[in-house]
Computed example of a mutant assay.
Amino acid sequence: MATKRQELGVFGEQRVVSDCACPRCKRQKTLVRLPPNFKCADVICDFCGFLAQVKAASARSLDRLPKSILGAAWGPQRERMESAIYFSLFIVLATTDRSYAIFYLAADLQEPDMFKPRKPLSETARRAGWQGFVYDMNAVMNRAVRLR
């Protein structure tokens, strides 16, 4: 049984796949979802191979990005950043009635400062030692564009 957060994530990925053209090749209906737990990417263009991350967040207002968004695993993200590899980011904001907005932040507009590691989970946690990160959107707020 999926959690509310997982359901929101799937909703966001489905909205990007159905509503967005590929930012690289500009083709419609070529973005497809990757399998769950694929590291650092959620969608791929089945024409040109473009990869992107999708983050979905609950919001009261669809007009403005939140100050921060929960990321995923810090280890893989940090390793990619050390190799200067960044994935573009689709941000889907959804209200309780499932109205939504989609924002896009290109990989080349991202900065290392926007990725903030979280404290590792305690030794008694189910996934002890796992460490996530947060996207600090304050640094790039004016760089994201609203697509829908």
Rank of each mutant, 00 (worst) to 15 (best):
R80F: 00
L89D: 04
W74K: 01
A101K: 11
F87N: 03
I102Y: 03
Q110R: 13
E82Y: 09
A107T: 07
V92S: 10
P76A: 04
V92L: 05
G75Y: 10
F103N: 06
A94C: 05
F103D: 08
I102G: 02
W74V: 03
R98H: 09
Y86F: 12
F103L: 13
A101V: 12
Q110L: 15
G71H: 01
I91Y: 10
L93K: 00
D113L: 14
S88L: 07
R78I: 11
D108K: 09
D113A: 14
L109A: 15
F87H: 05
W74R: 01
L105I: 14
F90I: 07
A101E: 11
S88G: 06
D113M: 11
V92Q: 04
D97L: 04
I91K: 05
D108E: 15
F87P: 03
F103Q: 07
L93M: 03
E79S: 09
A72G: 11
I85E: 04
P76Q: 05
S99Y: 12
Q77H: 09
L105H: 09
F115K: 11
R80P: 00
A84P: 00
D113F: 15
E79C: 06
A73C: 04
T95N: 03
A94N: 07
E79W: 10
A94K: 10
L105N: 11
L93G: 00
S83A: 02
R98C: 09
Y100W: 12
P112W: 15
T96W: 07
R80T: 00
Q110P: 13
G75R: 08
R98Y: 14
R78P: 08
L93S: 00
R80M: 00
G71C: 01
L89Q: 01
E82F: 05
Q110I: 11
S99V: 12
D113K: 13
L89F: 10
L109K: 14
S99C: 15
T95C: 04
P76T: 06
L93T: 02
F103M: 13
I85L: 06
F87L: 05
L105K: 09
T95V: 03
R80D: 00
S83P: 03
G71N: 00
L89T: 05
L105D: 07
E82G: 06
